[in-house]
Amino acid sequence: MKEKIIDIRDIKRHFQVGEELVQALRGVSFSVEEGEFLTIMGMSGSGKSTLLNLLGCLDTPTEGEYYLDGKPVANMTKNERAIYRNRKIGFVFQSYNLLPKTTAIQNVELPLMYNHNYSAAQRKEKSKQALISVGLEDRMMHKSQQMSGGQQQRVAIARALVNDPVMILADEATGNLDSRTSYEILTLFQELHKEGRTIIFVTHNPEIAEFSSRTIVLKDGRILEDKVNPNVKDARTVLESLPKEND
């Protein structure tokens, strides 16, 4: 049996907004095995981002238990969580979140800057490899704002990859992109999945869920359904069937 990389039990996350208590997650439990490609779906406001942030150790639950690699996250200090994010997790955001006025390679280097196990030369080399693997070998010295949305998201993915994470978490990673570029990004994720990485992909678009092996649907902070996808679509095939852009 494969390792349970994520195991959450009855997770709740509440936000106090003025007088009102917003219950973003009202008790969510599931586990993820190593090498899964999981899609979390749901309408806007259903708690997807809140859940993903908790899984990525960017946030902590109000209630419930979270075991990451078998270790309870509740017992980790802020610094330990930071180190976990740095070494084990790659995060991709909807709005790319690149450093402005900074070259692609420097953006990708960022996680390794906070990891003293890498020398400057190793850092450069790894970042180059990561950029090559997302198809941006000729854009390394381009600055964030000089690149298209799709290219920026690839840089963000390269940054998420560069530290060889056990899992990659993506929050609406294709949300700002046109459909062709979205399929390119999806192709990339499927390739990463084939390499054996665990991927959790948040989206509100049901079409995208067809490319993953499992889908969890959230509604109002609870799990509505959790189903395995028997026939996973291949993003590259879809991409190639799209009419060629003539520019």
């Binding site: 180190i83 994010r85 740095n86 960022l110 996680p111 906070y114 530290n163």
Partner: peptide
């Protein structure tokens, strides 16, 4: 602030 958040999300600790 956004930059700080971004750095933290890729593993910068408070002291970094």
């Amino acid at each position: 602030t956004k930059e700080i958040g971004l750095r933290m999300s890729v593993g910068a600790r408070g002291r970094d």
